[in-house]
């Protein structure tokens, strides 16, 4: 269970997060939606330990992790797939996956998870020795998700996994999110594609200029007039 209380993030003079509080219960899919620049990525980056200038409490399974570095965060079971995929273009698909497992040393478990990722994404399996940079956008996104899964996380945070993908691939990505969640993985999902995200989420938060303005179950927010107007196109 991840609990965030009164999280503030500053970039120089910019006050990007102004007291964000949210809960991600174990086993759930929680989504964070909001306009460009609302602070969604900042929230995930703060949890990951990338943002140093932050205030507030980030508690993970009962311990405060707000001062830990990214490597320790990954070891504690939280991993993030960053916005824009950020796969390693010059490394092969297999090497990208191995890199995702960097914090682990259980070789047998790693081998099993590589097989599992290839099962989830058969297209990656066919291209296992191809350089990451030669994959299509959709394949790169799958590699980015697969790479995060290779850390064997309890909580996986996905920053806009459907960005720039064709509708059919978007559907595939959301199917995968449901599927890994059904295997027991907790998911914190940041999305521009609000409708699809709310459909898949158990719990949802709306972030506006650094503040949570609405929260509720995914279904409740889909029905909410304010959400319909601002994020679902009326």
């Amino acid at each position: 269970m991840l609990e965030i209380r009164d999280l503030h993030v500053h970039y120089g003079g910019i006050h990007a997060l102004k007291g964000v509080s949210l809960d991600v219960p174990k086993g759930s899919i929680v989504t964070l939606i909001g306009a460009n620049g609302a602070g969604k990525s900042s929230t995930l980056r703060a949890i990951s330990g990338l943002v140093k200038n932050k205030r507030g409490r980030i508690s993970w399974n009962g311990t405060d992790i707000s001062s830990k570095n990214p490597v320790d965060i990954v070891k504690s079971g939280i991993v993030m797939s960053p916005e824009g995929r950020r796969i390693f273009a010059h490394l092969s698909v297999l090497e990208n996956l191995r890199l995702g497992a960097y914090s682990r040393s259980d070789e047998a478990g790693i081998a099993k998870d590589i097989d599992w990722v290839f099962e989830l994404f058969p297209r990656l399996s066919e291209r296992r020795n191809q350089k990451g940079g030669t994959l299509s956008g959709g394949e790169q996104q799958m590699l980015a998700v697969g790479r995060a899964l290779m850390a064997a996380p309890e909580l996986v945070m996905l920053d806009e996994p459907s960005l720039g993908l064709a509708p059919l691939i978007v559907k595939e990505v959301f199917d995968i999110i449901r599927m890994i969640n059904s295997k027991g993985m907790t998911v914190l999902l940041v999305e521009q594609n609000a409708y699809a995200a709310l459909k898949v989420a158990h719990q949802a938060y709306v972030l506006e200029v650094g503040t949570i303005t609405l929260s509720g179950t995914g279904e409740a927010l889909i029905a909410d007039d304010r959400v319909r107007e601002a994020y679902l196109g009326g």
Partner: peptide, 9 residues
């Protein structure tokens, strides 16, 4: 940065 995120020390 991404390496760090993936747990590379």
């Amino acid at each position: 940065e991404t390496s760090y995120l993936m747990g590379v020390p």
